[in-house]
Lab assay of single mutants.
Amino acid sequence: MMAYMNPGPHYSVNALALSGPSVDLMHQAVPYPSAPRKQRRERTTFTRSQLEELEALFAKTQYPDVYAREEVALKINLPESRVQVWFKNRRAKCRQQRQQQKQQQQPPGGQAKARPAKRKAGTSPRPSTDVCPDPLGISDSYSPPLPGPSGSPTTAVATVSIWSPASESPLPEAQRAGLVASGPSLTSAPYAMTYAPASAFCSSPSAYGSPSSYFSGLDPYLSPMVPQLGGPALSPLSGPSVGPSLAQSPTSLSGQSYGAYSPVDSLEFKDPTGTWKFTYNPMDPLDYKDQSAWKFQIL
Results as ranks from 00 to 15, higher is better:
P240K: 06
P21T: 10
Q39M: 10
Y288L: 09
T187F: 15
L57V: 02
R119A: 02
G209C: 04
P285N: 01
K88F: 12
S252Y: 12
Q256Y: 08
S22N: 04
A17Q: 04
V23T: 02
S169F: 14
L16W: 09
D290N: 15
S245R: 14
T45N: 09
L57T: 10
S241M: 10
S235P: 07
G209T: 06
S167A: 08
D140C: 05
F278P: 00
W163G: 01
P272E: 10
A15N: 01
A158W: 15
D271C: 15
F269H: 00
T194H: 08
M2R: 04
K60P: 14
A15Y: 13
A293P: 10
T123Q: 08
G122Q: 04
T251W: 12
S223L: 15
L18C: 01
G274T: 01
P236N: 06
P33E: 05
E52S: 05
Y67T: 09
L51C: 12
D65Q: 14
P133E: 02
V264K: 10
G255F: 14
R37E: 06
R40Y: 14
Q105T: 03
E173D: 09
S164A: 06
F87R: 15
K102W: 00
T275L: 06
P31Y: 11
G209R: 09
A200F: 13
L78N: 14
Q84I: 09
F46P: 11
P9L: 11
I162E: 00
G209Y: 13
P133G: 06
S238C: 15
L57Q: 06
D287V: 09
I138C: 04
Q101T: 04
G209V: 08
F269S: 00
S257V: 10
R115T: 02
Q104P: 05
L267H: 03
V83Q: 13
E71R: 10
P7G: 04
L171A: 08
G239N: 07
P172C: 08
S161T: 15
P153I: 13
L136A: 05
A166G: 08
G109N: 07
P170K: 06
P9E: 02
R82L: 14
P170S: 10
V23Y: 10
S216I: 13
P172V: 08
V131A: 04
V72K: 15
P190S: 08
F46E: 15
S81T: 10
S254N: 06
N89P: 13
V160P: 01
Q104F: 06
A200V: 11
G178E: 03
P244H: 07
P272Y: 08
R176S: 03
T45P: 12
P107I: 05
P125D: 08
V30G: 03
G217C: 10
Q100Y: 07
S182P: 05
M5K: 01
Q104L: 04
G110D: 03
S34E: 03
P33G: 07
V180C: 03
A68F: 08
T47C: 07
Q103M: 05
S81V: 01
L179N: 02
R41P: 12
V131F: 03
P272R: 13
N281E: 11
N14Y: 14
S49G: 11
P9Q: 04
P127M: 10
V83L: 13
A156M: 13
V157C: 01
S203L: 14
P147F: 08
L146H: 11
Y4I: 10
